[in-house]
Every structure is written in structure tokens, then in C-alpha cells.
């Protein structure tokens, strides 16, 4: 299956070629979880504070589905 992955703020450092606003499209096996994606991208799960699937918060071990839009977000704030 295919998922679309976005990395925000400091996490973009792990994929240096990724442009601001650019998404990665990854071909992954059925049952892949956010934890698997992070392993594949070489991002330590501790650096990730929020994971969103299609605009909703999910956990590290929730299985993904074909076509999901995934975002990994570090600890951020603003106002």
C-alpha cells in the first residue's frame, strides 16, 4: 500500500532533501504502523510528539491504511 508522509519543523533534518511543504510517498506493506515508518526514515520515536493521520491524532502503533496522509510533528508551540 501507499502512504503520504509529511515531516514538520526540526524533523525535516532527518530527510535533508525534503523541501518545505513536500511530502514523501512511501510504498509499505499492509499493517505498517507509524513506528515502522519512523524506523524506515531513521527518526527516533522520542523526537516525535504528535502523529496525525488524515488530520486526526493517532498512536505509534496504530495500523495504517492505503492512501493515508501521515504527519510527524515534534514538540512545538506558538500562539
Amino acid at each position: 500500500m501507499r502512504v503520504e508522509v509529511r515531516l514538520f519543523a526540526t524533523l525535516r533534518r532527518y530527510v535533508p532533501d525534503l523541501q518545505v511543504g513536500e511530502a514523501l510517498t512511501l510504498e509499505v506493506p499492509e499493517g505498517t504502523t507509524p513506528r515502522d515508518l519512523l524506523a524506515q526514515l531513521g527518526i527516533p520515536p522520542d523526537d516525535v510528539k504528535i502523529i496525525m493521520r488524515n488530520g486526526r491524532h493517532i498512536g505509534l502503533d496504530d495500523p495504517l491504511a492505503d492512501g493515508d496522509r501521515i504527519a510527524f510533528i515534534p514538540a512545538v508551540g506558538g500562539g
Binding site: 514538520f8 519543523a9 526540526t10 504528535i50 504527519a71 514538540a75 512545538v76 508551540g77 506558538g78
Partner: peptide, 15 residues
């Protein structure tokens, strides 16, 4: 070098 210091409050835009 945290989120606010590097990117400012507009770090929230994408999120």
C-alpha cells in the same frame, strides 16, 4: 534551537 526559537510562532502553520 527548539521549535519556537528556530521557526517562531509560525511553526504552527503546517501543524
Amino acid at each position: 534551537d527548539g521549535g519556537l526559537n528556530l521557526y517562531g510562532t509560525d511553526v504552527l502553520m503546517n501543524i
